[in-house]
Amino acid sequence: MTTAVVMNGPRAPLESRTYDLPELEPGAVLLRTLGSEVCGTDVHLWHGQLAGVPYPIIPGHVSAGRVARLGPGDPARDVSGAPLRPGQVVTFLDVYGTCGRCWYCTVAHATTRCPARKVYGVTLSADDGLFGGWAEHIHLKPGVHVIPLPDALDWRAFMAGGCGMPTALHAVTLGEIAFGDTVVVQGAGPVGLCGAILAQLRGAGQVIVVGGPEVRLAAAHRFGADLVLDISALTADERLAAVRDATGGRGADVTIEATGVPAAVPEGMRLTRDAGRYVVVGQYTDAGTATVNPHLDLNRKHLEVRGCWGSDAGHVYRSVQVMARYNRQFPWAELISCEYDLGTAQCALEDVAAQRVVKALIVP
């Protein structure tokens, strides 16, 4: 037997549920959960802001675990083709079932838009099994992309980035940051903080973080931001003036939006220099509309705007390699504000919703 936390519906209190351990199919993996993150997506799920969610669900879409058991026959393999071993510490891409045959998979090479995709902790029902990380065990179906964590990277250090790191890696890659660029990151949550770190690793000459609250701004300072602007202390006009002052009057070469607030988008366009790039990654749910002036904010600025949705197996794999390589320069685990067990998962969810923490982990 094993235990999981279940979210029965929007705003419903979290509940504990007991499961039998699953019979594994050939190619399947059973993980003993080491830790699973509590992120903004879980708050969106609790608030009922995502469509097509098959409540009840077991939340937790990015997790780390130890291989407890492998399905019969040839063992499951990791993304490099190596067979998995009992006792190995791994993470996995939360997206499951991408078809590999549709137009988005084969022509556009945009697997995040595959209509067949399912997501652990989001679009797989708790009635069907252990398909979320807020549980003592996780059932990885055949075909799930598994990425081993190297010895140089403690699982807590990896989970400090959580889904924010591969998402930010996708956004920063789309931003094509060049050596010496000034990069503005809107938002100081996990995606924004990881974006600010990755911008430094790509050679940014200056990194400016715009956001709040103080606990997250303090983390931005510790992890190398050159300038931090508190949205609670400065108006939009004052923030624009501060960025212009820091960039010779031009604005940022690249701006990355990681707020989830629609009004941040027109502001971000104005924070970016003429002929610059603007990557929108934070608008994961439909939080409403924003008004832009197509002439002043887009056309006359010759602005390039790129939307960024989620991440794929390559982004997770690269995140693991980057975090392992640079774990001395960036003490990733310091981003973890608090750890919670399954019995206090409700408190963890409420703390993340209130932005009282930078990163919260469920550690069964």
Rank of each mutant, 00 (worst) to 15 (best):
A4S: 12
V5P: 01
M7H: 02
T18Y: 00
Y19D: 05
R32Q: 10
E37G: 15
C39G: 12
G40P: 03
W46G: 02
G52P: 01
V53A: 05
V53W: 04
I57M: 08
S63T: 13
V67H: 05
P83N: 06
P86K: 03
V95H: 09
Y96E: 12
Y96C: 01
T106A: 12
A108R: 13
A110D: 15
T111N: 10
V119G: 00
V122K: 00
S125V: 07
A126F: 11
L130H: 07
W134M: 02
W134K: 04
A135T: 04
H139D: 15
K141S: 03
P150M: 11
W155A: 09
P166V: 00
T167A: 05
T173Y: 06
L174A: 12
T182N: 10
P190G: 12
C194D: 04
A196M: 09
R202Q: 14
G203W: 08
A204F: 13
I208A: 07
V209Y: 08
G212R: 13
P213M: 07
P213V: 09
L229T: 10
A233H: 13
T235N: 14
E238G: 10
L240V: 05
A241K: 15
V243K: 05
R244E: 10
G248E: 07
T255W: 08
V261D: 12
V261H: 11
V265D: 02
M269S: 06
G276W: 07
Q283M: 15
D286E: 15
V292N: 04
P294R: 07
V305F: 04
V305Q: 05
C308P: 01
S311R: 05
R318Y: 09
N327Q: 12
Q329S: 15
E334I: 04
L335H: 03
G343T: 14
G343S: 13
E350D: 15
A354Q: 14
